[in-house]
Amino acid sequence: MPPQRAGIQSVEVGFSLLGVLGAASGALMLRDLAAAAGMSAAKAHRYLVSFQRLGLVTQDAGSTRYDLGPAALKLGLASLSRLDSVKLARQRLQPLTEQIGQTLALAVWGNQGPTIVHWEESPQAVTVNLRLGDVMPLLSSATGLCFAAFMLNRHASQNRLAALLQDELARTQKLGRKDLPTSMAEATALLDEVRQRGLARVVDTLLPGVAGFCAPVFDADGHLALGMVALGSLATFDPAWDGAVARPLAAAARQLSSDLGFRGA
């Protein structure tokens, strides 16, 4: 354990009140706020008076309830503006790779579609003909399905996404593939399933003998920030929706979304 450095205990105690307000769904009465922070109402009130002077807390004159103030909002916005979602995600890939024993990757939306920006190979890495900067197909890759599902009709790039999806459907029809959607109705049904599960999966569609998952990571505005991807050979990769790969991958994506300020389900 690193050595404990001296601090100001009263600051740490008082911050518990701000933490309770930040986690609450709305303004709180003094008694409820104090109880949640584990202190008496009288003690909590003294801290709240100081926080009000600093603009960290406001009190409604009518209901007497307390809520976060404008100074807290400015601090939160400043912190969010400095977050680098890809950097944060990269920091978490190595321990996740060790946990699930599969190759992981990160993808973001680029000019031509979902683009691979980082790889983290496992000792049992599957050999794939993919490189950093490659754009993933929307219908045959877990990455593409994830981006299509969580960006279509919800994002500034939706017109570009819709056009790419139509082009890919046309190519699929021309190739006569039976394992992929060939109409917008079929694609819509598949994307609905991805949204319902909160996770995209492919098995044998992008590469023979290879399966993959992609979990969405959202920012504070609820927009898709990136996709966390896991892929591997079916000889060692668990493709079950609630299996040894899907569960920790989805959990890591949810935690990163929360750390980026996402407050959704």
Score class of each variant (00 low, 15 high):
249 L>M: 03
196 Q>V: 08
195 R>H: 03
154 R>M: 06
166 Q>A: 15
244 A>E: 03
57 V>T: 04
184 M>H: 13
79 S>I: 11
158 Q>L: 00
155 H>F: 02
167 D>Q: 15
37 A>S: 12
242 D>A: 08
21 L>A: 04
134 D>K: 05
72 A>D: 01
7 G>Y: 05
112 Q>A: 15
89 A>D: 02
84 D>N: 15
203 V>C: 06
47 Y>V: 06
38 G>F: 10
194 V>F: 05
251 A>L: 03
258 S>F: 10
234 L>T: 11
125 A>K: 10
253 A>S: 09
253 A>N: 01
74 K>H: 14
204 D>H: 13
187 A>Y: 02
120 E>M: 14
60 D>H: 14
32 D>A: 15
215 A>Q: 02
32 D>W: 07
111 N>D: 12
55 G>I: 06
64 T>P: 00
38 G>N: 03
215 A>M: 03
159 N>R: 12
126 V>K: 09
104 L>M: 07
242 D>C: 01
107 A>L: 04
26 G>A: 14
220 A>S: 14
24 A>W: 02
169 L>Q: 04
93 L>V: 08
29 M>G: 15
89 A>V: 08
42 A>K: 11
31 R>W: 07
202 V>W: 00
259 D>I: 01
224 L>G: 02
195 R>S: 06
157 S>I: 05
236 T>S: 11
13 V>M: 01
102 Q>G: 02
251 A>F: 00
109 W>P: 00
204 D>G: 06
8 I>H: 13
129 N>D: 14
252 A>H: 03
24 A>Y: 04
77 L>S: 11
221 D>G: 13
183 S>H: 07
240 A>N: 09
153 N>T: 10
5 R>Y: 13
265 A>H: 10
63 S>I: 08
154 R>V: 02
123 P>W: 12
40 S>K: 07
5 R>M: 12
6 A>D: 05
37 A>Y: 12
144 G>T: 08
222 G>W: 08
227 G>S: 02
97 T>E: 13
34 A>C: 10
75 L>M: 14
147 F>N: 02
205 T>C: 01
139 L>S: 13
55 G>T: 04
205 T>Q: 09
170 A>L: 04
258 S>W: 09
29 M>I: 08
48 L>E: 00
239 P>R: 01
165 L>H: 03
38 G>A: 03
163 A>G: 04
239 P>C: 07
102 Q>K: 08
133 G>M: 07
226 L>D: 00
185 A>W: 01
137 P>D: 08
